[in-house]
């Protein structure tokens, strides 16, 4: 187990290094960040000064060596624009993104599971067909488009929910969250729903196919023959068996939620790290892009690792096959 974890971490380090080198030289090739920093009416002299201050006048390999030197000293660079530690900037924004992704995950389960169960238990029912058709739609709708429609409908036309931003934030056990107040949830609901849409479809489909498979299993038939109530069969026998794969897949999908939050955050002005990345890309704020890539790659590798470990711990079949082999 330990060797497995170590190997994965080594890989992670390799990806981080590769991505950092790519991003570093890539941003150098795209353009000179100085033009996004100085005001439009800056003189040649001012531009030159700023260039020297930040070392943009040096050849790229010298800049890279400076950067490596900083990394060795434990400093991962300061944002050109904000002048503060890039990693700190990202970590400060991370709770907002995590909260959004987490809320989307909850919505995906709360909405997707009952619909999927229904569609799986009564596959021929018209409502079930509608649900499945809806799930294809959910897969197909582009996130950015839906986001705007949600704002149009719920904020502008109906005026029920705020269009933008995050509610009041409280700190609990050192974790920042806006989920403890009603106003927080009002702000959270629309972006979370927008982000959850794809995953709702995914949960519906997973649940449906899992339910259909489970319904044909001997133990369910047996339970039915025993005269157990439908709700008990569903609640205990079916749900228990389909939850493990769903949880696993959702764990893996958490990473994609964090990634897609780039889109949702930019539409709903959600102050998360995805929005920060887009701004950094627009301003060619190289230290910030590099830091984002590092943080996010580590995050994904960690999520995948945890899911893998949990999966092998939870699912008896995985253990069985391992012991047989």
């Amino acid at each position: 187990m330990l060797a497995f974890i170590l190997r994965r971490l080594m890989q992670a380090v390799f990806v981080v290094v590769a991505m950092v080198v790519l991003v570093f030289f890539g941003t150098y090739v795209i353009g000179d960040p100085v033009w996004m920093m100085v005001p439009g009416d800056a003189t040649i002299e001012q531009v030159g000064e700023v260039r020297r201050t930040f070392g943009f006048d040096q050849p790229v390999y010298v800049q890279f060596l400076h950067f490596l030197g900083d990394v060795v000293r434990g400093e991962f660079g300061r944002s050109y624009v904000h002048g503060t530690s890039a990693i700190a900037l990202i970590l400060a924004r991370m709770p907002a993104t995590m909260e959004l992704a987490f809320a989307a995950l909850i919505l995906a389960v709360v909405i997707g599971l009952p619909l999927g169960l229904f569609a799986g238990l009564k596959p021929e029912h018209p409502a079930a067909r509608a649900i499945m058709a809806g799930s294809i739609l959910g897969f197909s709708l582009p996130t950015f488009w839906v986001g705007l429609m949600l704002i149009m409908l719920f904020s502008v036309m109906l005026g029920w929910l705020p269009a933008t931003g995050r509610g009041p934030v409280v700190s609990i056990f050192g974790l920042e969250t806006s989920m403890l107040s009603l106003d927080g949830w009002r702000h959270l609901l629309l972006p979370a729903l927008n982000l959850a849409l794809l995953k709702i479809s995914l949960v519906i489909r997973l649940t449906r196919s899992g339910t259909r498979e489970a319904a044909l299993q001997d133990y369910v038939k047996f339970a039915r023959a025993k005269g157990l109530s439908q709700s008990r069969i569903v609640g205990v026998h079916i749900l228990k068996n389909i939850l493990i794969p769903i949880v696993t897949v959702l764990g893996l999908e958490f990473g994609s939620l964090v990634a897609f939050s780039v889109v949702t955050e930019s539409i709903f002005a959600w102050p998360g790290m995805g929005k920060l990345l887009l701004e950094a890309i627009q301003r060619l704020d190289r230290p910030l892009i590099v830091a984002y890539v590092m943080v996010v790659v580590l995050l994904f590798v960690t999520i995948n690792l945890i899911v893998d470990i949990l999966y092998s711990a939870l699912d008896p079949r995985v253990r069985l096959s391992e012991s047989e082999a």
Binding site: T27, I30, G255, S256, A259
Partner: peptide
């Protein structure tokens, strides 16, 4: 494995920004 561990939208976003 590594490729699949990273979300496609993010990789594509960074790549296109660079290209």
């Amino acid at each position: 494995d590594l490729q699949l561990a990273l979300p496609s939208v993010l990789v594509a976003l960074i790549l296109v920004a660079l290209l």
